[in-house]
Design a protein around this nucleic acid. Structure first.
Length: 797
DNA sequence: GCCTTGAAGTTACCG
DNA sequence: ACCGGTAACTTCAAGGCG
């Protein structure tokens, strides 16, 4: 080994650890400035945790008791008293250092039993994450390190292996390295329903990369040995940094691995000899690469209700549905077995993988920013839920503030009061401004210093600095010093402001602009999730009084704003949580904005202006016409995923006719036409499908709702139904419960459709919700004769 | 035994 | 595995009626 120290700059792709002999080693996978793939090994880091003694405990006795636990395979190398803070209060804790990470939970369990010990803290933080936190390294960001070349030959697939001399230092560079990305997608032979790896071969593996484009591996009839082997070889040759899939954590990878086991083929696609393996948050880890499942990000595209690859790619303009090959899963065996159809199947696989790659281009910049901000490695950040993303950010901040990280404890669920929603003034209103509080909850938390560490329990006296007292519920929070959450929120908001400021230096087309834009979005998501986090029973920093106080102040704030509006003579039409709908009187609205700013200390903004907006008596549902002619539909069936397309379409159209043209009769006429078409079987099945999610195991349902009954039928047909899956069904003619008449959409014929159900229970309820307000009865909708011309305006004179 | 009614279960939305 | 508030559907069992 040469001893020449060199300085390198690298982008942190992934981090893991291994134990070699009795030495733990941190492995950092990176990409250097000059485009080399490197592995950095840090042999100097050791696992540790803290012991919080009970008050009055004999510290030196405790120390020696802990030391006495030391075992040879992973000795306790030091027990030292250090000063930390716990929920803002200074505490003395014992820092216990050992050698082998796996030994930490064992020590924790034994130490917990000592009567002198109140709590063992930070013993559940994974070794590699501990490293990131302690050196404040950020995945998906640039760093600088002093390294020594590791000269011996290894079978690790990188350009260079180094020993690193800590500390590695983060550096601030905006650009991304030239990442090698490879998208992949598998197709399986499935003549008996859902494919199973014990039985059904992988017939096509499609891949796409920017350098090589499309490359497919195809089975010889039902022999897929070659497919797996050549795919693995191809990944190794291409050596991608990021492997992109769609639902790959739950399907493609587990299938390939299980299939590989059957065939005796090792799916060793990583940068070491290891196979991909299941890891935290349900993601599959590929050593030395970032395995990213885009499904995690597609889940946040709420406009798309059935989140198939085709639908998401279509919606985001990555690949329009009408420009690609679409094959339903039940037709696949046919396309495979028929030589004349097989090319089309291959094209289908190609379109899928090209869509996946395209979605990667859409989602990865955000994923990278989220990873860099939260500190979660790129392959985990998508799979981690919002709560964990927030938590990782908090844990890093806690370290910086010398705060101990609380343990995760199991608690029973507790509810508390939330926001207020106003009863809307029903009917049609013209020229309405929607005013929104900007980041209401974060700003409330900042203003009233709401945080787990500033909360004053009822039995404690008020501190001399004074306290903020929440309305209605009376929870108190000390005014000084600034609490943990306040500091974190201020940092997040400040950072976001800086990033948005920084964006101005670049043209909107530049990569820097795009990166910064994704970054500010990620910061916003994080800030907005802080309120929900504190009320989450699974949170380390769970604090119900804090959550409860936040909503209480929220209610007070919006109520005051509404009072101001009324005082100014502005009629309040509606309001929900942090928004109020008022008549758009420009001067008065400007006054209101000023008043709220000056008297309440919060910013409100005009979010949008409706030329015309319609409310029924229901809360959380309205439809408005925007100045540019677009129709905004909120809450109604038209924006819900669990109504048949035909009902949604008709409702939307009716809203449009009413809001734009004001013609009730035209709307009625249109509805009648659709009802006729339904009776005559002219509406295709695709518009009749109702999609509903299976939210728990089938046997756990207490009521057999239609989608549950259909799911059970699907299981009988040999299909896998898993939690989280959307079931598409249609209602057919017959008697009994709806559940008895519901069948999977792919198993229905148009002649069997129960038109009556779609008329009575889908189309009519959806449109009657709107038209009933204009005096139209269900009878009139079903009637065939037309009455005199009426318009919207006849009803509001 | 049939019909009505309301509670309970369930889903997906809003902010 | 972030929160509560809300609308609306279907099932299911209880109660009323004959």
């Amino acid at each position: 080994m040469s001893l020449i120290l060199a300085k390198i700059r690298f982008w942190l792709l992934d981090i893991t650890y291994q134990v070699v002999g009795r030495e733990p080693q941190i492995l950092i996978w990176g990409i250097t400035e000059d485009n080399r793939r490197v592995l950095l090994i840090d042999r100097s880091f050791r696992p540790y945790f803290y012991v919080l003694p009970r008050e009055g405990a004999d510290i030196s006795k405790l120390k020696s008791k802990i030391k006495a636990l030391s075992v040879a395979r992973s000795p306790i190398t030091s027990v030292e008293e250090v000063s930390k803070k716990y929920f803002g209060k200074p505490v003395k804790v014992l820092k216990v250092v050992t050698v082998i990470p796996d030994q930490v939970p064992k020590y924790r369990e034994e130490i917990k039993k000592f009567p002198e010990v109140k709590e063992v803290l930070e013993a559940d933080i994974r070794f590699s994450m501990r490293y990131l936190i302690d050196y404040q390294l950020k995945p998906s960001s640039w760093h600088e390190a002093e390294v020594v070349k590791y000269d011996k030959k290894t079978n690790i697939r990188v350009d260079e292996v180094y020993y690193v001399k800590p500390p590695i230092k983060p550096i601030n560079i905006i650009k991304e390295p030239p990442l090698r990305k490879l998208a992949f997608d598998i197709e399986c032979y499935n003549p008996r329903g859902s494919p199973s790896p014990e039985r059904d071969p992988v017939i096509i593996v499609s891949t796409y990369s920017s350098s090589e484009g499309l490359k497919q591996f195809v089975a010889k009839n039902h022999d897929d040995k070659g497919v797996l082997e050549s795919f693995v070889k191809y990944v190794q040759e291409q050596d991608p940094d990021i492997i992109i899939g769609y639902n790959s954590n739950r399907f493609d990878w587990p299938y390939l691995i299980e299939r590989g086991k059957r065939l005796g083929i090792k799916i060793n696609v990583g940068r070491t000899g290891a196979e991909p393996n299941p890891s935290v948050y349900g993601h599959i880890s590929v050593m030395g690469r970032a395995n990213v499942d885009l499904y995690d990000f597609a889940e946040e595209v709420y406009e798309v209700k059935v989140k198939t690859l085709e639908n998401i790619a279509d919606y985001l303009g990555v690949m329009p549905k009408n420009k690609r090959v679409l094959i339903e899963w039940y037709e696949m065996p046919k396309y495979w077995d028929d030589p004349s159809k097989r090319p089309l199947f291959l094209k289908y696989g190609a379109d899928d993988v090209i869509s996946t790659y395209g979605l990667g281009e859409k989602f990865l910049p955000f994923a990278i920013q989220l990873s860099s901000i939260t500190g979660l490695p790129l392959d985990q950040v998508g799979a981690a839920s919002v709560g964990y993303r927030v938590e990782w950010y908090l844990m890093r901040e806690a370290y910086l503030a010398n705060e101990l990280i609380p343990n995760r404890v199991e608690r029973p669920y507790e509810s508390y009061r939330g926001a207020i929603v106003l009863e809307p003034k029903k009917g049609v209103h013209e020229n309405i401004a929607v005013l929104d509080f900007s980041s209401m909850y974060p700003n409330i938390m900042i203003k009233y210093n709401i945080s787990p560490d500033t909360y004053i329990p009822p039995d404690e006296e008020e501190p001399p600095e004074g306290a903020w007292v929440a309305p209605e519920i009376g929870h108190r929070f000390r005014k000084e010093p600034p609490g943990f959450f306040k500091r974190v929120l201020e940092t997040l908001l400040k950072l976001r402001k800086q990033v948005r400021e920084g964006m101005k230096k670049y043209s909107p087309e530049s990569p820097e602009y795009r990166i910064l834009d994704e970054r500010q979005k990620a910061l916003k998501v994080l800030a907005n999730a802080m309120y929900g986090y504190q009320g989450w029973v699974g949170a380390r920093w769970y604090c119900k009084p804090a959550a409860e106080a936040t909503t209480a102040w929220g209610r007070q704030t919006i109520k005051k704003a509404m009072e101001f509006a009324r005082k100014l003579g502005l009629e309040v039409i509606y309001g929900d949580t942090d928004s109020i709908f008022v008549k758009y009187d420009k001067e008065k609205v400007e006054k209101l904005i000023k008043m709220v700013q000056e008297e309440l200390g919060f910013e409100i903004k005009i979010d949008k202006i409706y030329v015309r907006v319609f409310f029924t008596e229901a809360k959380k549902r309205y439809a408005g016409l925007l100045p540019d002619g677009r129709i905004d539909i909120v809450g109604f069936e038209a924006v819900r995923g669990d109504w048949a397309d035909i009902a949604k379409e008709v409702q939307e159209k009716v809203m449009e006719i009413i809001l734009k043209e004001g013609s009730v009769d035209k709307a009625v006429e249109y509805v009648r036409k659709v009802i006729r078409d339904l009776r005559e079987g002219k509406i295709p099945i695709s518009k009749l499908i109702i999609w509903k999610t299976i939210s728990k195991k089938l046997e756990e349902y207490e009521v057999e709702a239609p989608h549950v009954a259909v799911a059970k039928k699907m299981v009988e047909m040999g299909l896998k139904v898993s939690v989280g899956m959307k079931i598409g069904y249609v209602i057919t003619k017959g008697s009994g419960r709806l559940a008895d008449k519901a069948v999977p959409y792919f198993a229905a014929k148009i002649e069997d459709i129960d038109a009556n159900y779609y008329i009575e229970k889908q189309v009519i309820p959806a449109v009657a919700r709107v038209l009933a307000y204009f005096g139209i009865t269900e009878k009139e909708l079903k009637a065939t004769t037309v009455k005199s011309q009426r318009t919207l305006f006849d009803f509001f004179r």
